[in-house]
């Protein structure tokens, strides 16, 4: 039986009068990579921010590991990590300082702390530059640093908003591989992208979202068969027609 890590039920969110989410529902199972895909403004970031305990919502219910998000955001924060769509790290700290700073919030003891930092160093892959200030890093390096910090603690749920946004082909590939290999260790991932091709081979299941509504949920292969499409982009096009 698959353990449910995240359950979103009939989630609604308004920004003033604008309805950003019109009641969406989905589940993320243990150890799975679940992707929200959809065009710009579909409501992906809004959903992810709500699950990351950053935004309030107007209706519905969100549960992380059976905990009600409205009631126990503090407990939930111990189990999740969040990589925002556009994120930076403290420029005046070194990369290493940043990782240690973040690790201290999650580690129960020295042993765990060392383990987290070690794993993070392995993930970033540029050990020699970690003693330099973050201000001197390239975009790709910052993104990897942030991804490393999101995955180093082996959270129950890692929420990654467009993990490859703004990166070149090689860096994107590396990031995808990092995500793939670290999820084998029992972390579930909720990620978003508008790049439907990348999602195709990265995720176990996808939800196609547009204008605040989920149009379809399923495994990429099965969706492609159902809509007799070559790729998810075609599936999406069939759906909105």
């Amino acid at each position: 039986m698959d353990e449910i890590i995240l359950r979103v039920e009939n989630l609604k969110k308004n920004y003033g009068k604008r309805e950003a989410l019109k009641g969406i529902s989905f589940e993320v199972k243990k150890g799975e990579i679940f992707a929200l895909i959809g065009p710009n403004g579909a409501g992906k970031t809004t959903t992810l921010r709500i699950v990351a305990t950053l935004l309030s919502f107007s209706g519905g219910r969100v549960e992380v590991m059976g905990l009600d998000l409205k009631k126990e955001p503090k407990r939930i924060r111990e189990e999740i990590t969040y990589l925002p769509e556009e994120a930076g790290a403290y420029k005046n700290l070194t990369g290493m300082d940043y990782l240690k700073f973040m690790a201290r919030f999650y580690a129960a003891d020295k042993h765990e702390f060392d383990e987290y930092v070690e794993r993070a160093v392995e993930i970033v892959g540029f050990k020699d530059r970690l003693k330099d200030k973050v201000g001197t890093y390239s975009k790709g390096m910052v993104r990897k640093l942030l991804l490393a910090r999101a995955l180093m603690t082996k959270p129950r749920l890692a929420i990654l908003d467009e993990p490859t946004s703004g990166l070149d082909v090689i860096n994107s590939l590396e990031i995808r591989e990092i995500i793939r290999s670290f999820v084998q260790e029992g972390t579930s991932v909720l990620l978003s992208s508008h790049n439907m091709l990348e999602i195709d081979f990265l995720s176990d299941r996808v939800a196609i979202i547009d204008k605040g509504e989920i149009l379809e949920i399923g495994e990429p292969e099965i969706l492609k068969q159902e809509y007799s499409a070559q790729n998810l982009e075609e599936v999406f096009r069939r759906l909105v027609q």
Binding site: R49, T53, L54, R77, P84, A87, Y90, M102
Partner: peptide, 14 residues
């Protein structure tokens, strides 16, 4: 400005 606030707010600290 440096887009670090969002991350900080999801960290398990009061």
């Amino acid at each position: 400005q440096d887009k670090t606030l969002e991350t900080l707010l999801t960290v398990p600290i009061s």
